[in-house]
Structure formats: C-alpha cells, structure tokens
Simulated assay, not measured.
Amino acid sequence: MTDLTFYTNPQSRGQIVRWMLEEVGAPYETVILDYATTLKGDEYRAINPMMKIPAIRHRGKVVTEVAAICAYLADAFPDAGLAPAPADRADYYRYLFFASGPLEMTFSLKAINYDPPADKQRMFGHGNEALVFEALETMLGDRDYVTGRFSAADLVLASQLGFMMMFGMIEGSDTLKAYVARCTDRDAWRRAKQIDTDAGEALKAAAQAAAPAA
C-alpha cells in the first residue's frame, strides 16, 4: 500500500499522468477502471463525480484534471525538479494552461470534426486552430523547453501535441515535431508507455476471455 493512488484507463489521457508519475519516481498504486462499469460505479463516483479519468488520491486528497494533477505532483515531489522556483513560474504556468486550454479545445473539436464559424470563434477559448498553432510556433520560438529545462509544462504540452500527431489530427511543423521528440526522449516516458501498453493488452485479453463463444 502507498499513500498515492492513480485512477486511470490505459486508453485515456491518463497516459499523461502515468508519464508524470514515472518522472516523479514515487511509489504509487494503480486502479484500472473500465469505461462501461467501474468508471460509473459508486466507488469511483466518490472520487470524481464527473466520472472522468484520470484522478489521483494523495494522502487523502483528491486531484482531478490532467494539468492540475501534473502541477500538484511537481509541487508534492520537488526533488524530481519538474517545476521551477515560484518566482520563475510565469512561462511554466502560461504553457501548462495553454496546453490544457486552447490546445485541448483544439484537440476536442478536431476529434468531432467541428470548426467554429468565423462569427462564433470569439465564444471559444481557443479562437481557431490556425491561431493556436501560430501562437505555439511563436511561443516556442528557438527554446528547447518551456522554462529552459524539462518541466511538467513540457510534459503536458508535448503529450497533447503527440496525441494529435499520432491520431493524424495534425502533421506538425518541424519545430513541433522536434519539440515532441526532445520531450519524449526520456526513460520515464518509455517506462510509462510500456506500462500502459501492457495494461491495454491485459484489458483486451480479459475482454476476449469474457466474451461468449461464437
């Protein structure tokens, strides 16, 4: 037993938090939830009434929302060096919440093939897709990492961009491809991917075993 519990499904945004947990290096317990059953059960509803994953419980405190979880873990485990000093967090917060705001909105709308009409764009937090990626190109510029060294902000931003590239939502410019490659060239990322791959295969095998014979 540990004082840190991670609620997830390997085919979810929980992959981002898995990576963060592997970067932190603290022991944690994983609870894999099934979308059709345990995710909607009373036990998990008490953790997150939204019935969404991921979530963590640390020393009796629950944190939900990917960016919030990553920011919390960076502060809870400062020895991992995943957040700059409080006085140097302007860019850290800016990029962390750009990833969870405008970029996440772009991701979600592309997933349902919806592009807000020009006269409605001001009602959305990201404006439009072109504006988001033009801003990212400008914001990243020639920097290797958001704050000069890898941080939780890079982890969340690179994860969101990586998902969009993997699912064919964007091709990605040379700048963005290089940024994602640089951020994910880490042992913690590789460990996290392998853990979630194995968990996904286990879920698939369990579902096949439970399916009625044809």
Rank of each mutant, 00 (worst) to 15 (best):
V146G: 00
Y93W: 10
I112V: 14
K110C: 00
G148I: 02
L140N: 09
I112G: 06
I112P: 05
A118C: 08
Y92P: 00
R149P: 03
V132I: 09
R94N: 10
K110D: 00
L109H: 03
N113I: 02
F124P: 05
G127S: 10
L136D: 03
F98P: 01
L96C: 03
Y93K: 08
M123S: 15
R143F: 03
L131F: 12
G125Q: 14
L103E: 02
L109Y: 05
M139H: 03
A111V: 11
S100C: 06
F98Q: 04
D119C: 05
Y93E: 07
F98S: 03
E134R: 11
L96V: 06
G148W: 01
M105R: 07
F133S: 04
E134T: 08
D144T: 13
P116D: 07
A118T: 12
G101P: 02
A118N: 11
Y145R: 00
L131K: 15
F97S: 07
Y95P: 02
E134W: 02
K110G: 00
Y93G: 07
N113R: 13
R143G: 10
F107S: 00
L140Y: 04
P117S: 11
L109G: 01
E134I: 02
Y145C: 04
Y93S: 08
E129Q: 14
S108D: 14
A99Q: 01
I112E: 06
D119N: 14
D142T: 15
A130V: 13
E137D: 12
D119H: 14
S108W: 10
F97R: 05
A111G: 11
R149V: 11
G148V: 03
I112H: 08
D115I: 07
A118Y: 12
N113K: 12
M139P: 03
D115C: 06
Y92F: 15
Y93F: 14
R122I: 10
R122W: 11
S100L: 03
V132Y: 01
S108G: 14
P117G: 09
L131Y: 13
D119Q: 14
T147R: 03
E104W: 02
K120I: 05
P116N: 08
A130R: 14
R94F: 02
R143N: 09
M123P: 04
L131P: 01
M123G: 09
D144C: 09
L140P: 06
A99E: 07
Y93N: 09
P117Y: 12
